[in-house]
Write a protein that binds this DNA or RNA. Structure first.
Length: 469
RNA sequence: GGGGUCGUGGGGUAGCUUGGUCUAUCCUUCUGGCUUCGGGAGCCAGAGACCUGGGUUCAAAUCCCGGCGACCCCA
């Protein structure tokens, strides 16, 4: 029942929530650009710290490349230009002077990084290169923009780039990237499907692309991560060459993969309810908020609250004590709208009985915790919430992935993800035309079985279809 | 890419059709004070708006055109 309104008007829900939760202010006077507010920035930084840790654990090193790319570097890879030329911003003037070499604001950093790779790589011993950066990228989107979901400045692009001495190694890197991204989304409890994108939807300049999509309440999918095998397409045009142990030369084999702030949108949305977000405990800027309930002259609740705050902070919990002169009910709503996972109420009763009342944001269940057990119980509760939130989000997604045996059965599905078998022929286009859904891609590692949902011949692939953002 | 709707205090709105007491409505928010505090308290006082540029007109929030911005539908 609560979900209904979220499903009907997801766009409205989302912009209301990010504003009320003080995550972003979308009113910046340039289309497609938004302001990260302090609370949102903390959330963003916590999310970044997870992916940073995961990448570094697997031997990636953080770097920072310039925002501006010279025209000739940008124009070197033909497919890549074709993919981006219609949406890049140009810097053509410095002060009053026209620039001799026009510059683009990076829409992604291949053409910024790879000329440098060419300088860095001499021998096979210089490989592999595994670097990443977290930066803004700019794309002049012509379609309707939406905070965090379709923007002209992607402010939190976490892009990794690798170079290897063999095709096999690059292939293995693609697999490693997929595993890293799985872990990343798992830590945030965001459910996903993984597909190999069809050729028309492959990254500009890549041999193939693998993508993660999640499902939003309105039934449309949202691409939240991509992994690309670039083969030697870029290394050949940028001259990234190395000497092999046997003395011969070869161009490097490359991969790149990236995740934008859409992952933050997903974290807000997939765990949200009518009131707003329930932030995953791992990234919630405030994990526990303490609300003292103070009657006239009583001082115990406030004093006890201070002591509890200290204990939680010492235990590594991100806690906050709300001492504002507002009534408790008002504070409850305030923190629920900000997605704080746990609220602790400390009133005269708690002070007297040496226990506190904890309330979960996701289920709104009340739990009594003896004060001496507080830290342990809160830690356990945060982990429990994380596990349950993840499970609920996955259940919600799985409910909306439906197997379609024959295309004629399709009419029943209004949103979500359709899974069907197809032959190797041209039935994909017919499936798209008759359903209005687009093919996300072939399910990763799926083994085709049964018959083509369109023509009935033996199936050669399993595809996922959906309406997408 | 094609089509449509719409811009009024920080947020949400009334007014626009038929231009004129609009000195712009209501709710919320915010500020100061009193009083309160177990799910958005109450009272008093106060703050705050016609997106932008041009045009029509004696007169524009209201009508016309451009720009910027927001939202929706279709491909």
């Amino acid at each position: 029942m609560e979900q209904a309104r979220m499903e009907d008007s997801f766009g409205e829900w989302f912009s209301r929530v990010i504003r009320e939760a003080e995550i972003m202010d979308p009113r910046y006077p340039v289309k497609g650009l938004c302001v990260w507010l302090p609370y949102g920035m903390k959330l963003r930084n916590l999310v970044i710290s997870i992916i940073r840790r995961l990448l570094e654990e697997r031997g990636h090193h953080e770097v920072l490349f310039p925002l501006l790319i010279p025209e000739d570097a940008f124009n070197r890879e033909a497919e890549h230009i074709r993919g981006f030329e219609n949406e890049v911003y140009w810097v053509t003037r410095g002060g009053g002077e026209e620039l001799d070499v026009k510059l683009v604001l990076r829409p992604t950093s291949e053409t910024s990084m790879y000329p440098m790779f060419a300088l860095w790589v001499r021998s096979h011993a210089d490989l592999p290169i595994k670097v990443f950066q977290v930066v803004s990228v700019f794309r002049h989107e012509t379609k309707m923009t939406k905070p965090m979901i379709r923007v002209r400045e992607v402010t939190t692009f976490k892009e990794a780039h690798t170079a290897h001495s063999t095709r096999e190694e690059a292939e293995a890197q693609v697999r490693e990237a997929v595993e890293i991204y799985r872990k990343f989304f798992d830590e945030l409890g965001i459910p996903y499907v993984i597909t190999k994108r069809p050729e028309w939807d492959t990254f500009a300049g890549a041999e193939y692309s693998i993508a993660f999509d999640t499902l939003l309440p309105d039934g449309k999918t949202l691409q939240i991560g991509t992994v690309h095998n670039l083969g030697q397409n870029f290394s050949k045009v940028f001259g990234i060459e190395f000497q092999k142990p046997d003395g011969g030369h070869d161009h490097v084999y490359q991969t790149c993969y990236g995740i934008s702030e859409r992952v933050i949108a997903a974290a807000i949305v997939v765990h949200g309810d009518e009131l707003g977000p329930c932030l995953p405990p791992k990234v919630a800027p405030i994990q526990v908020v303490i609300v003292p309930i103070v009657f006239k002259d009583e001082r115990e609740p406030t004093e006890l609250s201070h002591a509890l705050l200290q204990e939680l902070e010492r235990g590594g919990i991100r806690a906050h004590l709300d001492l504002r002169n507002l009534r408790p009910g008002n504070k409850f709503y305030y923190w629920e709208r900000r997605g704080v996972p746990i609220r602790i109420e400390v009133g005269p009763k708690e002070a007297r009985w040496r226990k506190v009342t904890a309330v979960r944001r996701d289920t709104r269940k009340r739990i009594e915790i003896p004060i001496e057990e507080l830290l342990d119980k809160i830690k356990t509760l945060l982990v429990e919430m994380e596990v349950e939130m993840k499970k609920r989000a996955w259940d919600k997604l799985n409910e909306r992935v439906r197997k379609v045996g024959k295309l004629d059965d399709f009419e029943k599905i209004t949103g979500g993800i359709a899974k069907m078998s197809l032959c190797g022929g041209g039935c994909a286009r017919e499936a798209e035309e008759r359903t209005g859904f687009k093919i996300l891609g072939e399910e990763l590692d799926s083994k085709p079985s049964g018959r083509c949902a369109v023509c009935g011949r033996a199936a050669e692939r399993t595809v996922l279809m959906a309406r997408s953002y």
